[in-house]
């Protein structure tokens, strides 16, 4: 018996959420933990540090194209080859498709958005209603796929041999049917959905020219920057920074909502945050109902002072 963990790469390194998936896979205690990775991530040694006994590395350059058909064929093929009973992935925009396809090909039950380890009967808790509730489901099939919600796993080291072996998956003619025309990516910034700290700004910041306040504070904290829906609708910030019900759902340890009133659609995207800090000039803003800490006042005065205080304290 073994467990296979899919490691997703972003900007040349294994994503933090994939490391969480690896820790989860190790905690299952269902045999050796294997990992599948495509490309040559700079932090491949992390996989061994967090419990991978064997790392199956795909060097086929076609896999730079994030094609869920090719990846699902590779992943299910490898799982069968090593006799895995469980595949673990970190939930992301890409792995949603991968989970679906792999569960179909590999004939496995799949649970997504998982926040707990299974009990002895493989009852597992997952987040539903966009963080407003949980449900427990039992996975009864022989083969199982678990897609773990970000920041749901505490990362602890458990060194393993981490032997890197080359893996050449065979893919069908259906793979790589999608052509990539161009890619736009912000580089060198902390990935919003993976971030431990997020600093978000709303309409209270009055215009895109004032976003330096947000990015300066984020830089001091090593945080990702986010925004509310009106801000991305007004094109002050790109859509991929929109946090909320129909944008990115975040689950950081610390979330700053600056000049964000706290419309329910925004709160839906942040309700899984451990600690929420709100800064707003309106003392009656609904954001204070979900925040753990709050300051009522002018963001243009408070944020620079807070950034300075953080710089001194860290």
């Amino acid at each position: 018996m073994s467990v296979l963990v899919f490691l997703e790469i972003s900007e040349g390194s294994i994503k933090k959420s994939s490391i969480e998936a690896l820790v989860y896979g190790h905690s299952l205690q269902l045999g050796d933990v294997h990992a599948m990775v495509a490309g040559n991530p700079s932090n491949l040694d992390e996989a061994a540090k967090f419990g991978a006994v064997k790392i199956h590395s795909i060097s086929d350059s076609r896999f730079q194209n994030m094609d869920s058909v090719a990846y699902s064929e590779a992943l299910s093929g490898l799982a069968t080859q090593i006799g895995a009973s469980v595949i673990v992935l970190a939930k992301s925009a890409f792995t949603d498709s991968l989970t679906a396809r792999t569960s179909f090909i590999w004939d496995a039950a799949a649970a997504t958005n998982v926040v707990s380890l299974p009990d002895s009967e493989f009852n597992i808790k997952r987040s539903i209603f966009t963080g407003k509730a949980f449900e427990t489901v039992a996975l009864s099939s022989e083969r199982k796929i678990i897609s773990v919600r970000k920041n749901a796993v505490a990362v602890t080291e458990s060194p393993a041999s981490g032997e890197v072996v080359s893996f050449q998956p065979s893919v069908s003619s259906k793979a790589f049917a999608i052509k990539t025309i161009s890619t736009e990516k912000t580089s060198g910034e902390v990935l919003l959905s993976d971030a431990e700290i997020v600093v978000s700004g709303g309409r209270g910041l009055k215009g895109p020219e004032n976003w330096g306040l947000i990015s300066d504070m984020a830089k001091v904290l090593g945080a990702a920057t986010g925004c509310s829906k009106p801000v991305s609708d007004l094109h002050w910030r790109p859509h991929h920074e929109h946090v909320g019900q129909t944008g990115i759902k975040v689950s950081p340890n610390l979330y700053f909502a600056i000049g964000i009133s706290g419309a329910i659609q925004h709160v839906a995207g942040i309700s899984s945050s451990k600690v929420i800090v709100a800064i707003n000039k309106d003392a009656d803003a609904p954001i204070f109902k979900v925040a753990n800490y709050g300051i009522v006042g002018d963001a243009f005065e408070i944020v620079p002072k807070l950034t300075q205080a953080l710089r001194e304290a860290l």
């Binding site: 039950a109 099939s141 199982k144 109902k289 709050g294 300051i295 002072k305 807070l306 205080a309 953080l310």
Partner: peptide
Amino acid sequence: SGLSFKNYELPPPRTTCKMVADSQVAELV
């Protein structure tokens, strides 16, 4: 699907918001 539903639950309620005066950013930190 190989999945069977067991039960629902709600997350624990959030604690009340601790307010910090706008002149006391160091206290927030």
